[in-house]
Structure formats: structure tokens, C-alpha cells
Amino acid sequence: MTAAPIISVRGLITRFGKNTVHDGLDLDVRRGEIIGVVGGSGTGKSVLLRAIVGLLKPAAGKITVFGEDVRNTSVADYRRLRRRWGVMFQGGALFSSLNVQQNVEAPMREQLDLSPETRAALAAIKVKMVGLPENALSQMPSELSGGMRKRAGFARAIALDPEIVFLDEPTAGLDPIGAAAFDALIAQLQSALGLTVFLVTHDLDSLHAICDRVAVLAERRVLATGTMKDMQEIDHPWVQAYFKGPRARAALVQKDTA
């Protein structure tokens, strides 16, 4: 693939007070791939995601998405840019005063001028696509289980058919069956909608099952990127421990027998 990367991060530095989270971080994401971002707790995976989508202002560095600089854009440009990506936060982050249908409709309502019937039909399709029953549409977020909330958050993230979806730990806190179903869902929608997926995760099974490439965050930068197979050969204690630990072996065995 020689096409220009859809997301490119160069020399990113983020700090919270005296604590430097990223120090000269570089990362490229290619169009149409599922990239898994892994790293120990506190290595700034979610911070990286927030910096890319512009929720957090880094101390230095250049972040371009679709070839446009995220940091130095006018408000109108940023708004237009934002329509082309969707974000699913940990735990779904649904608006608690709106029901599922209104949550999924929220981006359409704010960004586009659609008739209520069209919005309702599209919201119903998205909700069914993420595997929720149709009667979930009228339910409030507090009535949903954690897994259903994540699915509804995913439906909201893809409401406008974005080109990139950012997913923050989509399978964390789900039971193995639910997590596997969510992985399958991401892969299925990725191929159906032609998404680029930026996946922050701890879940080795997800990495094996759906990620085209993996980026390892450690020592305040991206230590390595490559396929899961490449990761096995990287000679770094943390990478070795992560990808060759007991859990990693279990995930590998599961994949081989599957």
C-alpha cells in the first residue's frame, strides 16, 4: 500500500503537569485497516485517541487526519472533519437523558437536515446492525446492560457512516462470548462499510481475531508496529511479556484450533 496514510501522527508530545505521556510519538494508520493500539495501563492509549480526535491539546506534534491538520483548523473545518469519524468511548458514553434511538439520531440531528422518518429508519438500521433488538430503541441507557450500552455507543459512532471509527476498549468488561461477538461485529461492519478502525484494546483475542496491524505503546512512544506475527519476533521485554505471556499463548492456541 503506497497510498497516503489516513491518520498520521508525527512527533506527538503530551504532558499532564510534569508527567510526560508521549514523547515524540509517530504513528501511521492506513485506509481500510483495523489497527489495534496496545500498551500497559497508563501508557496513554486513550490519551492518544483523544489527541487524534481533538479532545485534548497536545504540547507539540503534528496530527493529520484525511491529510488535514487536526490542530490548526478553523472551527468550521474541524466540524466538517469531525463528521467523517465516529468515536465510541469506554462504556458507551450514551447521553443518559435520551433513549437509544435519540442517542443514535443525535449526530444526524446535529449535523444534517434529515426528515424525522429518515432519521428514525436509519437509527433502526444502525441499532439492528450492531446486534441490538429493535425494542432496545425506546429504552433508556440506564436500562441496558454494559454490553448493550457498548453496542448502542457503537451504533451512535457509525450513525453518519464515518470513514474512521475510534473504539476505546470495546470489549473490556464483556464476557468472552460477548467480546467475541463484538469482535465479529467490528470485522463485519468494517468490511460492509469500508471503515478504518482505530482500536484501543487490552484484549489479545481481539488483536488475534480482527486486527490487521498492531501498534505497541511503551516508553512514551510507539515501540513497534506490525502484524501479530511480527510482534512475536520483537526483542523487547515488555513486548515479549505481552505477546508471549500465558494469556497470549492461550489466545494463540484458541486461534489455531478455531
Binding site: 428514525a120 429508519a121 433502526a124 438500521i125 439492528k128 446492525m129 429493535e134 425494542n135 430503541l137 425506546s138 463485519q188 461492519l189 468490511s191 460492509a192 462499510l193 469500508g194
Partner: peptide, 22 residues
């Protein structure tokens, strides 16, 4: 091919005709 896949996905997930009125 990708468009066909998308059409199939949408066909599988079309909402039912009547929404229960709240």
C-alpha cells in the same frame, strides 16, 4: 462487490414495518 455487501447487510437489518408507538 463492496456495495453489494452493504446492500445485503442493510437488507438483513431493515426495521420492521410498524414501530410500537410510545
Amino acid at each position: 462487490e463492496p456495495q453489494d455487501g452493504l446492500l445485503r447487510t442493510v437488507r438483513d437489518h431493515m426495521p420492521g414495518p410498524a414501530h410500537p408507538g410510545a
